[in-house]
Design a protein around this nucleic acid. Sequence first.
DNA 1: CCATTGGGTTGCTTGTTGCAACCCACTGCG
DNA 2: CGCAGTGGGTTGCAACAAGCAACCCAATGG
Lengths: 145, 145
Amino acid sequence: MECSVARTLDVIGERWSLLIVRDAFYGVRRFDDFRADLGIARNVLADRLGSLVARGVLERRQYEARPPRYEYVLTPKGRELLPVLLTMMRWGDRWEADDDAAPVTLTHTTCEHETTPVVTCAHCAQELSWGELRTDPIRVRIPAR
Amino acid sequence: MECSVARTLDVIGERWSLLIVRDAFYGVRRFDDFRADLGIARNVLADRLGSLVARGVLERRQYEARPPRYEYVLTPKGRELLPVLLTMMRWGDRWEADDDAAPVTLTHTTCEHETTPVVTCAHCAQELSWGELRTDPIRVRIPAR
DNA sequence: CCATTGGGTTGCTTGTTGCAACCCACTGCG
DNA sequence: CGCAGTGGGTTGCAACAAGCAACCCAATGG
């Protein structure tokens, strides 16, 4: 499909992939730690890790020779998924939070304030809303009728 | 799972849901238009639309009485998925683009410049990077060993 | 010498998808 | 009036993907 969203979903748009990436951000590196944290079946995890490595999101590194042991760490490409995770985190907090459980909060250590991630225009720094955006070429998917 | 990312994925983390939402942003409203644009099976589409309506992402509105005809439009909750779509769009553009095809560009109509969406701190307006963020409570998913 | 750990593979069963066919209510057309 | 076309689905079946449990192997610790 000739759409960047679709191509992104092709890489991470599947039940486990993004959760694996989230765990990788949280510092998880090893097979059994992913497994323990996610409760995913071993074969499915092996499959997902392999495909994320093949797509360049994770890198498989041997950190011990005998016995051979591997760890999975984010590549630069994988680290650039952070905005996707942050926006999803925010949406989930806002719309799907448990009433009783306070959500995890984020602190921006450079300004030492609790932060909410907002998506802004790289040029004028204002928050982006759909009404103020135009695609070029224009993509209106309503067929002529 | 007690994680906002996981809860978000529970709603939209499935092969078609987010593509349906993307089309809804592009103005698609009717069953057969989604179908034509996505190439999705009818039963699966009916199922996804139903679940997105049940989760409050889309609203099903009758726009014609006899014969009954319905359209699916984004709710405020659904419209707030825009940041997720924009960040995914950007990632796909950057890392999964066809070499030959120029990606769709976004123009911010308020400043009339081509824009890239960046994720910034709501407080200090700087771009957020993982190294400058702390979660609270701290979520490090590396079990003590 | 035996249990444990890391990192898997294999086989079987169950749940999801996709595809095609069908359905129903209406509209427009001749 | 009859009949094709359109919107919005449901039903049935086949193919594939995911989950679960069992097994494997190499090394390490005691």
